[in-house]
Each structure stands twice: as C-alpha cells, then as structure tokens.
Simulated assay, not measured.
Amino acid sequence: MDSKFKGIVVENSETIVEMWLEEVARLKEANRTATISDDMYDNTNREFVEVIFTSIKNQGAIKAVETFSEKIISLGWPLSYITDGLQVFRRVTINFILSQSDSMDTDSISNVLSSVDRWVEPIIRVLVNEYTGNWENIVSLQRVALQELSAPLIPVIEGITIMPLIGTIDTDRAKLIMESLLQGVITHNSEVVLIDITGVPVVDTMVAHHLIQAAEAVRLIGAKCILVGIRPEIAQTIVNLGIDLTNFPTKSSLKKGFMAALEMTNRKVTDVTPCEDNIGDLIESLKGE
C-alpha cells in the first residue's frame, strides 16, 4: 500500500473502524448471520477489523488471518460474512481517503483504488482459500462417514442378516450397497438377507432396478433376499411403474420378513413358557439339589 495512504488509514483507524462497524451491522440480515447474538456479532466484527489492520501494519501477518478464518469456520459462520465485510471495508477506506483531499485528479483516484486493492485482495484470498479448504476437508470427512454408514449389514442370528436402508438411493450409493451386501453375505455366512427399505422415502424405477440387481447378485452366491418395509404408497408406486418383483419376496414389515426368513432356514418361533406342573417339578428338583 502507498505509504501516504497507509499513513492516512493508520492515523484515522478508529474513525474508519466505526464507519465499517456501522455499515457491517446493516448486513446482518443479508449475510445469514441474523441468528447470531448482537454481542457475539459485535465482538467478532471488532476482531475481524483488528485482523485487517494488523495486516496493513505487518504485511507478513498471515497467521492472524488464518487463525481468524479457522475460528469463523468452527463457529459455522457463512463465507458471505467474510466477503461482504472485506468489500465494505474496501469501500469505506477508499471513500475516507478520497474525502481527505479537496481535489483529486483521475490518476490520483486510480492510485487510491489500486493501493487499497493491493492491501485488501491478499486478505480476501487468504481468508477465502482457508475457508473453502477447511470446508472441503469437512465435507470430505462427512462423505466418508456417510459412506461407511450408508449400507450396514447386521447379523441377527446364524444365517439371517438385516440391511436397513435410510435415505435416498442414488447410483453411487447403490454400488456401495451391492458391495457391502455381497461382502457381508460371505463374511457372516448368511442364508437370508432382509433388505429393509422402511427409511427410503422414494422407490422409483432406478431404485427398484438396483435392489433387484442386488438380490440377483446375492442369489448367485447362494443366499436369498427378502425386501421388507413395503409401505402402501411404495406398493402403489411399484405397481404403477410396472416393476416386476415376482422373483423378489416382499413383506410389509421387518417382523413379517424375519418370520419368513426363519421358515426359509427351517426354523420357527415356539412358546417355551413352562406349564404349572412343570414349574412345580422344577422347584422340587431344585430343592433336591
């Protein structure tokens, strides 16, 4: 920044700060920070402007800028807060410098603009790059976590496992479901897999196609699939779309599906509650011991 303009800005920093704070306060609704308390908003604004002035006094003070950016990200503030704040600061600073001169020619005005830009633009670049880099990292970690939880296979009893599906199923997720399903069937030595779509909001042609493919793949490795969680609206959609699930056993609930899986594995649920006579015999035998 031009030494002359730098001197003007530093000497009148308090005035410029107050002008900036006043204008930024009007942007609270526009830059999605309306839910933030007034005290926190004001304190953060003052910290923000302090970081800006630190950078003009010390051109190598990038660490302070990065630290502030990390704090804003951790608090979940929008990127627009940073960009709007710096644009307002640029405008306020230019207007103040120009107001200090009674008359300025075109060259002088251009010099002021370019001088302020050389000061503000590096700050914008550092803050935005730091902000976007951190968010990309967060999104990447969240994507990995979602992928790990997107298609869990849960062994219930020997030979029977359940795969509960929640949320929208797209092509990428369908691929993960297929991989997890096949690997899980082998790992758990499953005979029957219950695919529970109770939490899937929409079952269209594409989703049904992926589910049928998954069931066919499971059949090829010696196991069977039962589709459970067929809600009335899902059943109606499947019929309207003409989707053929003839070779894919379906049940309306997980309970019914589990009972069917027991039958497929030659098992059944029986009442083992002892009768009164048996209870008496059991008590006598315990007394004898």
Rank of each mutant, 00 (worst) to 15 (best):
K4Q: 13
K4S: 04
V9N: 05
V9H: 07
V10Q: 02
T15D: 12
T15H: 05
I16V: 07
V17G: 07
E18L: 08
E22W: 05
E23C: 00
A25P: 09
A25F: 08
L27R: 02
N31M: 07
R32N: 12
S37E: 13
S37V: 10
M40W: 11
V49I: 15
F53N: 13
F53M: 07
F53K: 14
S55T: 06
I56F: 13
I56M: 06
G60R: 05
A64R: 14
E70C: 00
I72L: 00
G76Q: 05
W77D: 02
I82F: 07
T83G: 03
R91F: 10
V92D: 03
T93C: 04
T93G: 10
I94K: 03
I94R: 02
N95F: 06
S101N: 10
D102K: 11
D105P: 04
D107Q: 14
S108N: 11
I109R: 01
S110Y: 00
V112L: 01
V116W: 00
E121V: 10
E121M: 13
R125D: 02
V128D: 12
V128I: 13
N134A: 03
W135Q: 00
W135A: 01
L141V: 08
L141H: 13
Q142G: 14
Q147V: 01
E148Q: 02
A151T: 02
A151G: 05
P152H: 02
I154E: 13
I157R: 11
I160A: 12
I160G: 13
T161C: 14
T161W: 02
L165I: 05
T168E: 04
D170E: 10
D172I: 09
R173D: 03
L176Y: 12
E179S: 13
E179R: 10
L181C: 01
L182D: 04
L182Q: 04
L182C: 06
L182R: 07
L182P: 05
G184A: 06
T187D: 11
V202Y: 09
D204Q: 11
D204M: 10
D204H: 15
T205P: 06
V207M: 11
H210S: 06
L211E: 02
E216L: 09
G222R: 08
I226D: 04
L227A: 00
V228S: 15
G229Y: 00
T237Y: 05
I238F: 06
N240I: 09
N247W: 01
F248V: 10
P249D: 10
S252D: 06
L254V: 12
L254F: 15
M259Q: 11
M259S: 11
A260E: 15
A261V: 15
M264K: 14
M264Y: 11
T265W: 08
N266K: 06
D271T: 15
L282W: 08
L286K: 15
G288K: 08
